[in-house]
Every structure is written in structure tokens, then in C-alpha cells.
Simulated assay, not measured.
Amino acid sequence: MPEHDPEQELGPKITSALQDHAGLTGPQKSGLAREARRRVHRRRQAWSAAAAAVLAVAAVGGVWGVVGGDSPVATSQSDSASSAGAGEPERKSEGVAKAQDTGCPPTHPIQQAASLQPTAGLDLNSPVSGLWACRYSLTQGGLLGQQDFDAAVARQVVDAVKVLPERNPDLPVFKCAPQTAKPSEAIVLRFATAAGTREIWVVYDGCADAGFFTGTHTYGLYSAPLKLFMKGDVRPPSGTYLNALGDW
């Protein structure tokens, strides 16, 4: 259909009005003509402004209903992103702490401990999300090596320890003087849990005792758990009970 032009309606009306007042004097005729032209000009301005508004909205990606009604389309990419984010539920941090938050401190209470019983021992039924294995010298002091492991390895270590008896009957029983009973080094297993860092102390040197100590329970020293974390510079070159194990 041809575009509707308001001037097509105004033209005949103005002409008819001029003819009806043909008997008017010259000044009156000229005044009517000016008034007609002014009204046509105002109509042109109004339609031009409306057309410009449509083009401006379309240029920024919006949708404008000329005949009314709400548009279901967002007017900009930022509005789209805001609408998408508003529908998503707030995400909260769940689970246990990350192993990276535990780390291996340069010095550790195991170096001065009178007995090898951690005060923040691990409950072997607690979920774990990571592990740092920290090897310390108990005679000269200092951190000898460290290695971090993911949640899968951490769970494997816990599962391997919890099934062990309190003592490995295949290991020898040494008789030694008190000054030589203390191990020269030991490993601290620092687990990340929901309650914070919890530890197992691993003793494999000296001549007094050996095994995995949780603070509330002792598990015998076996090679299966050792193979999971004794890697890199956490792996000792030797140890009294390690040498007796043979397959660590």
C-alpha cells in the first residue's frame, strides 16, 4: 500500500478554505495562507521527529512498539547479560578447604614434640579434599621436602591407613638407648578438611616405634600407604624401619 501522507489531506482542505473565503481582502487572504503553511510545517516536523526516534532505537539494537505493547527483546547486550544473571541462583562455596591452603610450614611442632602424637590429628572418617606431605628433620631442624596431592590421592592415603592394624608384626623390635631412640626425620601429612588442616604423623626412623599416628590412634607402618606420598624430595633416602620393610 502507498505510504499515507498527511499533506494529501491538508492540501484539499486548505484549497477549499481559500476558495470559501475568496471574497476576503488581500491581507486576510495572505494571513490564512501563512497559517495553513505553518500548520503543514508543524505536521512535517512531528512526523520527522517520530521517524528519527524509530531509527535511533533500532540503531542500538532495541525494539520499539510503534502501535504499543511491551517488547520481549532486551534493548542492549548489557541488559541481556543482566537478565541472564538475574535468573541464576547464588553460588556458595561448598565442601572442604583446598589443599593449597594448608602448605608445609618451615618449622613444625613435630620437631620439638616430646611424643609423636599430633594435637590436631585427622579423624579418618572425615572427608578430605587435598594433602600436603611435609618431610622434616628432627635433629637439625628444617623442612627437607614437600609435595602436594589432590583430593583423590588424599582419600587413597586415608583409606589405605584406616584398614591397618596397630602394629606391623613383620617389623623388628629394637632395643636401643634413649639418645638414639628418637628418629632423625619424620613426615607430616597435612590434610585439608572442612574443619581445617588435620594431620597424621609418619615415623619410619629411629628405634623406638614406627607407624602412622593420628593423635588418638596408632596404625602400623606398611608400604602401601607410603608409596602414595613418598615421592620427589618427600621420599627419604633410608630409614630404620623403611629398610626393614624392603618394598617401600
Rank of each mutant, 00 (worst) to 15 (best):
P2D: 09
E3C: 06
P6V: 14
E9Y: 05
K13W: 13
I14G: 00
H21V: 10
A22Q: 07
Q28T: 06
K29H: 04
L32T: 03
A33D: 08
R44Q: 12
A46M: 14
A50N: 09
A52K: 11
G62F: 10
V66D: 11
V67K: 13
G68D: 11
G68L: 12
D70N: 09
P72R: 15
A74L: 10
T75I: 04
A81C: 07
S82N: 11
S82A: 12
S83F: 10
R91V: 14
A99E: 06
A99C: 12
G103P: 08
P105A: 02
P106T: 08
P106C: 05
H108D: 02
P109R: 04
Q112T: 12
T119Y: 13
L124Q: 01
N125I: 06
N125W: 08
S126T: 07
V128H: 00
S129Q: 13
G130C: 08
S137T: 04
G142H: 02
L143R: 01
Q147K: 06
D150P: 03
K162Y: 06
P165D: 13
R167T: 10
Q179Y: 15
P183M: 15
A186H: 03
R190W: 09
F191Y: 04
G196T: 06
W201M: 04
V203F: 10
D205V: 07
D209N: 08
F213H: 01
T214W: 06
G215Y: 09
H217N: 06
T218V: 13
Y219S: 04
G220P: 04
A224F: 05
P225L: 13
F229T: 00
K231A: 08
G232H: 04
P236S: 05
P237Y: 15
G239I: 02
Y241L: 14
A244N: 11
A244T: 07
L245G: 05
G246I: 06
G246H: 03
